[in-house]
Simulated scan of single mutants.
Amino acid sequence: MIPLIGSPVGEPAPPGRPPRLGELSEADVPFRTGHFLAYAPHDFHRIAYVEWGDADSPYVVVCLHGLSRQGRDYDPLAYALAKAGYRVVCPDLPGRGLSGWLKDPELYALPQYAADMAALIAHLRVPGKIDWIGTSLGGLTGMVLAAARRTPIRRMVINDIGPFLPWAAVRHIGSRLRDAPRLHHNLASGEARLRTVLAPFGPLTDEQWRHIARHSFFPEPNGGFRPHYDPAIGDAFRPGRVYSVSMWRDWDAITCPVLLLRGQHSELLLSDTADEMTRRGPRAKRVEIPECGHAPALLDEGQIRIVTDWMGPAG
């Protein structure tokens, strides 16, 4: 079993207090890793995932990360949902984490991500419908799937993303991704950069930053640490390719219940867009997360409770 922050698992939390990151243990909640092969034109690639909770639970939640992130961001939320009786699956999109890289960088886009996640759902052999939690790009992918006919999604949590994305914010995110160093001399250097570029995640503890950094970089054989993702995922943000994105047609086709989370200072999910999302389509329930931009990290107890209270216990 892979420890959550690269160190031995600590003692269980005292009764009545949720465990900290270092206290999550496989004895408390079953924790597994898995993978399967998904198809892209002319090639198959690996999709890796972490799975929490009872493997036989019919109540399945898929948690999908943002553009340059990976599934281990969801560890504390996945733990909480597994404790509530859910089977929770946190995949890495292609080009991220432990998943394979695509040979054609042009395929790093929503159609491929939606196809891969549909393949994941089939791979999991879910007997009924699933719940979906998506941050940023993970939310857009969920919107595409939820808007489709005969969708397997019964309800959805969308974290700081919407059907309209202003080009200036998209350009900023793309520039930050494309300008990221390809190698850090040590993990501390990588963590320091993350603390700067991911500051909109909100106030995080040192332990939470260490957890994010531990799963954001891989050691290189000749020394140093590289980001966990394929640099080619930034090709879509090259100059001249960035524009405002509108997906209102997808949003209006969604009929399942939706909880919409918005960082108070988000520049990607504008307040006006979030308001409109409560008035049309699935008419989402909106919750504003204070002291955050794009996107709330969903690592602290308060943010996790917003999600778990809305979802309730499995059943």
Results as ranks from 00 to 15, higher is better:
Pro3Ile: 00
Pro19Gly: 03
Pro30His: 04
Phe31Arg: 12
Gly34Met: 02
His35Asn: 13
His35Glu: 14
Ala38Asn: 03
Ala40Ser: 14
Ala40Gly: 11
Asp43Thr: 15
His45Thr: 14
Tyr59Pro: 00
Val62Ile: 15
Val62Ala: 05
Cys63Glu: 06
Gly66Met: 04
Leu67Glu: 10
Ser68Thr: 15
Asp75Pro: 04
Ala80Phe: 00
Gly85Cys: 06
Gly85Lys: 03
Val89Lys: 01
Pro94Phe: 07
Arg96Trp: 00
Arg96Cys: 10
Leu98Ile: 00
Glu106Ala: 15
Tyr108Arg: 09
Tyr108Trp: 07
Ala109Arg: 14
Ala118Asp: 14
Ala119Lys: 07
Leu124Gln: 01
Thr135Tyr: 05
Gly139Tyr: 08
Val144Ile: 13
Arg155Leu: 02
Asp160Val: 04
Pro163Gly: 07
Pro163Arg: 05
Pro166Glu: 11
Ala168Ile: 12
Ala168Cys: 07
Arg178Glu: 10
Arg182Phe: 01
Leu183Pro: 02
Asn186Met: 07
Thr196Trp: 08
Thr196Gly: 02
Leu198Ser: 14
His211Leu: 09
Pro221Ser: 01
Asn222Cys: 09
Gly223Asn: 02
Pro227Tyr: 01
Tyr229Lys: 06
Asp235Arg: 12
Phe237Ser: 12
Pro239Trp: 04
Glu267Ser: 12
Asp272Leu: 13
Glu276Gly: 03
Val287Leu: 10
Glu288Leu: 14
Ala297His: 05
Asp300Cys: 09
Ile304Lys: 11
Trp310Cys: 06
Met311Tyr: 02
Pro313Val: 11
